[in-house]
């Protein structure tokens, strides 16, 4: 059901039946390594190209999620997934392996929540029984496309972020036990005229603020309704900027109830500069770490705001600004569960 200007409320409350997360070597050294289902020691994952490794990340996450939910791939109606690589080949190729009907979506690093919102919408209205949804990114494959070669010695500024190697997949179903998706707010493309591709957090912060404010307004709730509002990959700078911006606009948020996936995933001292980023960042942290915490009862209601910078290497070289987007999905578990 539509509520306000751009928020969907899901009366049937689709369930996240199972989730699976796969990570790379850098994530294995991170803060939340225990929350991953599978961790790889090698960035190549035994493949002969990073793009293939990227695809394997996805496949493993898909199969792991189905295994955990104890369902066969024939029972899954759709896959809704996306990633950052040109033409989204890793997602499409992984969907080829599963040979399940597939919708590829692109929202840069906000893909995870974009796909989850759409899946919830479809499941809510009886469009499907089970949908596999997810997002992934591979550090080397993404850096290769968006920045310099991985081994190139260019000094990154402290505002730069580290692309997560990982895939996070959720199986959304009509019935079952698990965290429930209650509402979703679709973001607007916000462009504040920033052009520095090494400062994504700063560029994306206004988009996150816009979506959070829209969600709160549409739902007619106070932000304190949520135990945790978690942003996708704003990093240190983006988090500070967005928090201050929210406060400036008159929304009171407590520090510890406003977290960022890009800061949760890595340990202090890992050379990630401003934090993690990439489509896999919000996917792995939310589907792994945060949902585990939810199941342990530490969090009851959570708003995930995945942010994405909708640029391509071409546009920023042509001097265009970086348009950004953020999608919010509310997930609840326990409490007033029906």
């Amino acid at each position: 059901m539509m509520k306000g200007h751009r928020t969907w409320v899901f009366e049937n409350r689709p369930v996240i039946v199972a989730t699976a997360t796969v990570g790379g070597p850098f994530e294995a050294n991170g803060k939340i390594a225990d929350d991953f289902d599978l961790l790889h020691e090698d960035l190549w994952l035994g493949e002969d190209s990073y793009e293939k490794a990227h695809k394997v990340l996805f496949e493993e996450a898909f199969f792991q999620a189905m295994k955990k939910a104890r369902i066969e791939k024939e029972q899954v109606q759709f896959i809704i997934a996306g990633d950052l690589i040109n033409q989204m080949t890793p997602s499409s190729f992984a969907a080829r392996t599963l040979s399940t009907p597939y919708l590829g979506v692109f929202g840069a690093c906000s893909t995870s929540m974009e796909a989850l919102a759409l899946s919830a919408f479809i499941v809510n209205y009886g469009g499907a029984k089970y949908i596999l949804t997810g997002a992934a990114s591979h550090n080397a494959a993404v850096e290769k496309q968006f920045r310099y070669p991985t081994e190139y010695g260019g000094q990154k500024p402290p505002t730069a972020q580290w692309t997560v190697t990982g895939a996070g997949v959720a199986l959304v179903g009509k019935e079952g036990d698990g965290p429930r998706i209650t509402s979703a707010t679709i973001g607007r493309v916000v462009d504040m005229g920033l052009t520095d591709p090494f400062n994504m957090g700063g560029a994306m912060a206004p988009a996150a603020v816009d979506t959070i404010e829209a969600h709160v307004r549409d739902m007619g709730i106070d932000p304190s309704y949520y135990d945790l509002i978690v942003t996708g990959d704003l990093g240190k700078i983006g988090r500070t900027v967005s928090l201050d911006l929210l406060r400036k606009n008159g929304m009171e948020l407590e520090e510890e109830r406003y977290q960022d996936c890009g800061l949760l995933i890595y340990r202090e001292g890992q050379p990630v500069l401003s934090g993690g980023s990439g489509a896999g960042c919000s996917a792995t942290v939310v589907y792994g770490h945060l949902l585990h915490r939810m199941k342990r009862g530490e969090i009851k209601r959570m708003l995930v705001v995945a942010t994405g910078a909708l640029l391509s290497p071409l546009t920023f070289q042509q001097g265009e600004t970086i348009p950004c987007i953020a999608h919010a999905v509310a997930i609840e578990y326990g409490g007033d569960d029906r």
Partner: peptide
Amino acid sequence: LTPVQQEYHQFEQARETKR
């Protein structure tokens, strides 16, 4: 840039980690 964008630029730059 629009005034809103300019304002945000300053807002953001004040919170950016400098090189």
